[in-house]
Design a protein around this nucleic acid. Structure first.
Lengths: 336, 336
DNA sequence: GTTAACATTACACACGTGTGCGATAAGGTG
DNA sequence: CACCTTATCGCACACGTGTGTAATGTTAAC
């Protein structure tokens, strides 16, 4: 990087002190309008661009927001990041994006790196393997603001943006029940993850409310990937009597189950009806089209960013007790 | 942000000078192994985390890589970003991600913001509407390194990572020809974008090599989105004689054409065969499964990041004449 | 004409880190 | 013992900006 014009250069050119230049550029009332004009003119003439690094160091804060997600290339997270960036851009912030690859250790490393880079705030969806939150608490103790979304960390005192996973799962399951299904299986994500738990509870509640008994055998927690859906369905197909419906924790898992069901010579939805979660674009074009629960991912990112930026600007926490819950919507397609 | 432990705190605790601490932490040979050990121990004990802002200011460079893409939530770009982040993380860099939303003005704003934040380098895929490159040249003049990928900017002297769009399009088109198709249409992206042009040329070359004449009427440049594919196909269906095959610039466009074709009561591939580009996950599950050209998006990000980081570290440009061309692979499915 | 009040600017220092150079001490060589 | 080499560490300053306070200039009031 070549050296560039600084406020000292401007000061030298006008034969005044650089402190005056600094104030003039920030429209400080203590500096005479005339000199203010001169300074700004010279700044333009010399093509001055402030060194944000120096300002950040002095102010001990930045215009950067750190974002940590399990995997960027998953459509849901990509859409959330898209929403975050949109809001951040409008507010003059830039986003630092990291992926934990579902590994706790890497999430910690990411957090440390972002802290070192003095991000003004953090937007996080935790990894599957995260069960402790010291790295987040450390950041908060230093005055950093955090907002969680989707996979939130309950024990940390911070705003959380989620969809109504319980209600969405409840409706999805009830939809299956209304269609006469009685042996409804569930493939979950990872047991201690908030969304997994909420969706599982919604599933179970729908069963019980409708007088169906809950069988632990019909529930498998395998993960969030397509391959996890395959593994889960392989396990479920060994059961007798065989399930006649599946509520999957998300769309990739549901799609993963598709292949196993078809390979077993079974028909969707005749033999096994399937419902997913998240309205991934893939769900609309898969064969048969997948009934799923729409969750507003892009909006989720926007809300999270808006809350965080408000907190950064005000310096105050807000709404740390009850999460912001966005509504879901059941999208009925041919698979159920 | 509350103040944190600095090297001065460590120095005070050990009753040595902070300069020695600085050197000890950076494994400078001038400091005794014993004190080096003591310093590191104390650093861990006090939970020291370096203030990168200060280091950046002193060094006049950062550990940040700026990434500008048209839209994050498109699977292709999300996958590339994923690859970039992976390599950057391993090398101790973090990535600043911006989206241009296909708008030139916003791309310029993004670039300026990233320059202000003193990113060490830039990885860019330009927007549809970008036809000038002063903002990139400005960055280079200040010593910044740029690597372009996919939608590259030809006029700028920088390494470029692309797939063999020409060859991929050629093979895709020839595949259609081998199946007896004669009136092969093409829906392109935006005419001045590098990938659009290369794919169009491959398409045209395949026609001409196989003795088919090229008809401008059969080519529409509409954009890269699904909706552009719909618009394009609506236009193509008005032609007589109707095309019997389509080579689309990418998978979303191909999928967009699906709907219009089906609504017109036509069958894929019987009436119109379709080939896409990029092997978007959606292409495998759409009905019928879409024949497409696989491009290694994740690897593209990794290569781009590797090249950029090498350039940053060495301070030298490399390979700015001929782009790094990754191979494509035709994936044959039911749609053609 | 003196003084108070105010406007404007200069000075000095701080943020946390890195580095050239000098200071000190230890050890070796003649 | 004198001298040089080497190892180790402290001192001072720098990066570019922001800010409290002192200093200077200007105006108004008595």
């Amino acid at each position: 990087m070549k050296s560039r014009t600084t406020i000292k250069d401007i000061a030298r050119a006008l034969n005044i002190h650089h402190a005056t230049v600094s104030r003039a550029l920030r429209d400080h009332p203590d500096v005479k309008p005339e000199t203010r004009r001169l300074v700004k003119e010279m700044a333009r003439k010399l093509n001055y661009q402030p060194n944000i690094l120096a300002r950040n160091l002095k102010m001990n804060s930045t215009n950067m927001i750190g974002v940590i997600v399990p995997e960027i290339k998953h459509h849901f997270f990509a859409a959330v990041i898209s929403g975050i960036e949109e809001v951040a851009y409008q507010a003059g912030y830039v986003i630092l994006v990291c992926q934990s690859n579902e590994q706790y250790e890497r999430e910690v490393m990411n957090t440390r790196a972002l802290i070192s880079n003095k991000v003004a705030g953090l937007i996080v969806s935790i990894s599957q393997t995260t069960q402790q939150g010291e790295h987040f608490r450390l950041f908060q103790e230093q005055g950093g603001k955090i907002v969680f979304f989707d996979r939130v960390f309950e024990e940390i005192n911070a705003p959380k943006v989620v969809v109504d996973d319980y209600q969405g799962a409840f409706e999805a399951t009830e939809h299956l029940i209304r269609q006469g299904r009685r042996r409804i299986a569930h493939i979950g994500g990872t047991e201690h993850i908030s969304v997994s738990l909420a969706r599982f509870r919604g599933y179970r509640a729908a069963l019980e409310k409708n007088g169906l008994s809950f069988h632990p055998d019909y529930v498998v927690f395998s993960g969030f990937h397509e391959s996890d859906g395959q593994r889960g369905m392989e396990q479920l197909l060994k059961l007798t009597p065989r399930p006649d419906a599946l509520f999957a924790v998300n769309d990739p898992v549901a799609v993963g189950s598709y292949e196993v069901i078809k390979q077993a010579g079974l028909k969707i939805p005749d033999d096994i009806a399937v419902v997913g979660f998240s309205n991934n674009p893939i769900s609309a074009v898969v064969n048969p089209p997948l009934t799923t629960v729409e969750q507003p991912s892009y909006e989720m990112g926007k809300y999270a960013a808006e809350i965080l930026i408000r907190m950064i600007k005000s310096g105050k926490d807000e709404n740390t007790e009850s999460p912001l819950v966005l509504n879901t919507r059941l999208i009925k397609r041919a698979s159920a």
